[in-house]
C-alpha cells in the first residue's frame, strides 16, 4: 500500500465541485491527475485526493497554429496527435518519446507533470522555452504565461491547471530538446531546451532552459543574450554554451557530480542550438 494515510477520495465531474472538495478537504488534500508520481511519493501527508479524471480535460486541439492541450491529456495521446507531430518539426513529440517508457506515457499526464514541478521534468524546460501559456481554474478562469507557475511567489493552492497552449510560432522559429540519461528510461541527469527565432538580420529571440541541474529547470539569460543579434554561427553557439556553463548552478546527486553536470550544460546547450539551427536551415533551404 502506497498512500497509507489516505482517508478520502473523490472524482468530481465538474471543476466547481473539484475546487470545493479541495478547499473543504484541508491541508492533506491534494489534486490528482494520473497519480503516477503522487502514488510513488507514498507521502504520509496525503490524507485526501480529488481525482481530476472525471473532468473531460483530456484533449488536444489545433487552433490556428497553436496547440491546446487539456491538462489530463496523457503523454501518449499528445505524442500521437497530428497537432503535436506538426508543431515546430515535431519537437514536442521528440521530447515526449524520451520520457520513461510507454507504460508510463500511457497514463502520466501533461498537466500532472507541469504541476508536480519535479526537477527532472522534461516537459517543463521545453514548454517554457516554447513560451506556453496556461489556464487555471479556482472558481474563476485565469490565463497567463507558463513561467508564472514557476515564479518564486507562485502559489497554486486551490487552483486547478486545466489547459496548456503552445503558441503559434512565427516563420523562422525552431526549437530543440536534449537530454542526457544513464539509460533510455531513466530520468534526466540533465536536460536542455532551446527556441530560436530568426529574421534576415539573424537571431532576434532566444529562449534557453536547463533542467535537472539537479534543480528545477530555469532560464539561462546569459546564453539567450549571447545569441540575440548573431547569425547563430558555430562561434556564437560556443559563446552561448560557455555562458550557460558559467551561469547555471549545478549540484551533486546520485546521478552525477556538479562538475560533470557543468560539462553537460555546455554539451547540451551546444547540441540543442545546433539541432534548432539545422531545423531552421531545413525549413528555409
Amino acid at each position: 500500500m502506497q498512500l497509507t494515510h489516505l482517508r478520502s477520495y473523490a472524482r468530481p465531474i465538474d471543476l466547481e465541485s473539484a475546487v470545493e472538495l479541495l478547499s473543504e478537504g484541508g491541508r492533506g488534500t491534494r489534486l490528482m491527475a494520473a497519480g503516477t508520481d503522487l502514488v510513488l511519493s507514498g507521502s504520509d501527508e496525503i490524507t485526501g485526493l480529488v481525482d481530476l479524471g472525471g473532468l473531460n480535460l483530456a484533449y488536444v486541439e489545433e487552433r490556428d497554429g497553436a496547440v491546446a492541450i487539456g491538462a489530463m491529456t496523457t503523454f501518449t495521446e499528445l505524442l500521437e496527435h497530428p497537432a503535436a507531430t506538426g508543431y515546430l518539426d515535431g519537437v514536442v513529440v521528440e521530447m515526449l518519446r524520451r520520457v520513461g517508457s510507454p507504460l508510463l506515457r500511457n497514463v502520466a499526464t501533461v498537466g500532472g507533470n507541469l504541476v508536480r514541478k519535479q526537477p527532472w521534468s522534461d516537459v517543463i524546460p521545453l514548454f517554457r522555452a516554447l513560451g506556453a501559456s496556461v489556464t487555471l481554474f479556482d472558481g474563476d478562469v485565469r490565463s497567463g504565461p507558463i513561467d508564472d507557475l514557476y515564479a518564486e511567489a507562485a502559489h497554486l493552492t486551490g487552483a486547478i491547471l486545466t489547459e496548456i497552449v503552445l503558441p503559434s510560432q512565427p516563420v523562422g522559429t525552431a526549437a530543440a530538446f536534449w537530454k542526457f540519461t544513464r539509460s533510455a528510461v531513466d530520468i534526466a541527469t540533465l536536460n536542455c531546451a532551446a527556441l530560436i527565432q530568426t529574421e534576415e538580420s539573424g537571431c532576434i529571440r532566444a529562449r534557453v532552459f536547463v533542467g535537472a541541474t539537479p534543480r528545477l529547470a530555469a532560464a539561462v539569460p546569459s546564453a539567450e543574450a549571447a545569441l540575440v543579434g548573431t547569425d547563430l554561427s558555430a562561434a556564437a553557439i560556443a559563446t552561448a554554451a560557455r555562458a550557460a556553463a558559467d551561469e547555471v548552478p549545478t549540484g551533486d546527486d546520485l546521478r552525477a557530480t556538479a562538475a560533470y553536470r557543468t560539462r553537460l550544460v555546455s554539451v547540451g546547450v551546444t547540441r540543442c542550438l545546433e539541432d534548432a539551427k539545422r531545423r531552421l536551415e531545413g525549413v528555409t533551404s
Binding site: A34, T36, V39, T76, L104
Partner: peptide
C-alpha cells in the same frame, strides 16, 4: 520494471502506479 503491466482500458500501464480507486 514493467512486471506489473496490465491493459487498462486497452492501454498498457504499470499497475503499481495506478491507484485502485482511480
Amino acid at each position: 520494471c514493467g512486471a506489473c503491466a496490465v491493459l487498462l482500458d486497452g492501454s498498457a500501464v504499470n499497475s503499481c502506479m495506478v491507484l485502485a480507486v482511480a
